[in-house]
Design a protein around this nucleic acid. Structure first.
Lengths: 350, 350
DNA sequence: CTGTTAGCGCATTCAA
DNA sequence: TTGAATGCGCTAACAG
């Protein structure tokens, strides 16, 4: 078996008859270095011919940062949609030469520091907030960007906040448009989902109140503008009920809605919506409009088929990717165009 | 702001009044090196006091391998259960000092080589097969273990093969035990799921034929025991129908089953099972027994509530983790005890 | 038995 | 364009 030593930049240099420094300059297209096209070509040719691939470890050691973007997953169950988002994000970042990896598993297992120290990432993404100390530690260790996609405090990030609110808005708008004035909100049972549920509920409230909850489009703007009532006549508050994924408690919630005159329910997601449907069925109650979120496969197969709201994960992922790339290369963050991001899929349930 | 330089082993050495070599020996508990308890203690104290954390990049550069285990996800949508498995795997590997990361996104985006080269992993896991060239390249680059969890060729791995077969077996056994003799199999529409579907279907066939399909338990054992027909009378082949996640085509499949006298259907997973249920409902057909896989939240909320089969992801993950750790440290692979791995959750649909 | 010296692994980048 | 230093930890060879 032939000797399988790694091919290093020194090999390339030797073959091209230049120094390793030159090789580095050529391969990295280092700005401010003038290399003659001839040498340049020799180097490129040698590199290709030898099948040279730089050592990620050495590069990381030297520059203090790898080309990896790390995403920390929360410990609660992630659904298909998040999986989708991650896939798209991976694709989008790949286009920019960044490798996207995800770390599943709770923070409880290991201090998060151990995770990023093992990777030396260029950027770290998370759904929940980091403590200030953690953020500071990462920054100090050379991580270019630390983003909490959601969460309350986060002075950086919350890149998912607006889309989540929009989800709630679209739900409420659809129900209002179909003649329902008294709305209910089916809140998830699992407290860990609160971080997603709150902005969605806020979106619903915003529509019912005829008031924007939080400005759309933040980008790198220093301070999100303050909420302004626009003076429209506020409708009644949506009646919030926690709905576990079980028929009996769901039926109880439906009963309470009925008593309060609620005719349309925005559910946290399709699963919760399915529970509401099951609850209504158990009560033999018809005519309650329900709208979910995500359009999971089971939604179209439900009785009745579930009306729901979907997000264009591809666009969202592209935006997130651009944000990350911008931060890593020191450019300003882009703004998110939310126009067609969220769509209502109308079926029979609402 | 205080100078935030990294703390290196040299710093620890200086503070402890020893050489860097000694620090390394102490911190790695290098076998075959005797260091006096006194020195040892000084080093440990200094390291702790300074908050020393070794540079993963330098370590990787030197040893040629990081402490990261990389899992490549297929490009098809992964469900909650796989997410669950990954989470448990992460936890189990963390206990062994390994960092688990997942790369979502299709192989089409980027040659897979770019991904592992960016990480320099200790092990690479994948659901689908690698080409021999890929496997060889990784081996040569120092990856200790390359496992394809599923797939046909894989001379290494297929660690998930047996559990998947077992899933099918449990489904069929349940249906047979409840008096159904003529079975159908609801095959998924998406061809990418074939890799999971085939072993499951094989499990069903094995039960119907009264013959084990593939030996249980492979581990590092030299030769898996051979398949033995037990001479029972083989029942009729399960009638396989592809069932898309839509009511109309699902109804068509149900119709064909009815015509063939099928009374019990094993579905690829809960979603497919839900489609079968929806199809039967569309036909106003009652009495068709359906059993799914995964126990997704929608299963219990279905009409009728869906009987399904679940896997103990925790146990499975622990086994996978042990396998990885064994390979990385050169020990023999463990064997999987499949006794209570798969359970039937009985509800109304079967 | 204890601990040290010295050089390696590989690419980046400053100063010449 | 290049030589040489740098980032950080590992480990074979060796001295006390």
């Amino acid at each position: 078996m032939p000797d399988t030593r790694r091919i290093t930049s020194a090999d390339v240099a030797r073959h091209a008859g230049v120094s390793r420094a030159t090789v580095s300059y050529v391969l990295n297209a280092t700005p401010g270095q003038s290399i003659s096209p001839a040498t340049r070509d020799r180097v490129l040719r040698a590199a290709a011919g030898l099948g040279y691939a730089p050592s990620a470890a050495a590069r990381t050691l030297r520059t203090g940062r790898s080309d990896v973007v790390l995403c920390l997953l929360p410990d609660w169950p992630i659904g298909n949609e998040v999986g989708d988002l991650l896939g798209n994000l991976s694709t989008a970042l790949a286009r920019e030469g960044l490798t996207f990896v995800v770390h599943p598993g709770s923070r409880a297992d290991r201090p998060i520091a151990e995770i990023w120290k093992a990777i030396t990432p260029a950027a770290v993404l998370s759904f929940t907030d980091f403590s200030d100390a953690e953020t500071e530690a990462m920054r100090a260790a050379g991580v270019a960007l630390v983003v909490a996609l959601l969460g309350r405090a986060g002075r950086h990030g919350r890149e998912l906040e607006v889309p989540q609110q929009l989800v709630g808005r679209r739900q409420a708008e659809h129900l209002l448009a179909t003649g329902h004035t008294r709305l209910g909100y089916a809140y998830p049972d699992d407290p860990r989902l609160q971080i997603f549920a709150e902005p969605r509920l806020a979106g619903v409230r915003a529509v019912v109140d005829r008031q924007p909850a939080t400005p759309v489009g933040e980008g790198g703007a220093p301070e999100p503008a303050v909420v302004v009532r626009d003076g429209g006549a506020p409708g009644p508050e949506p009646l919030v009920e926690v709905v576990p994924l079980d028929v009996a408690p769901a039926a109880a919630a439906v009963e309470r809605w009925r008593a309060a005159g609620v005719t349309g329910v925005c559910a946290y997601n399709d699963e919760v919506a399915l529970a509401v449907l099951a609850g209504a069925r158990a009560l033999a109650m018809t005519g309650l409009a329900v709208i979910g979120v995500d359009d999971i496969p089971a939604a179209r197969l439900a009785v009745p088929p579930l009306t729901t709201v979907t997000t264009d994960q591809r666009t969202l992922a592209a935006h997130l990717a651009t944000t990350v790339v911008a931060a890593v290369s020191g450019r300003p963050a882009p703004i998110l165009h939310t126009a067609d991001l969220i769509r209502v899929v109308v079926r029979d349930s609402a």
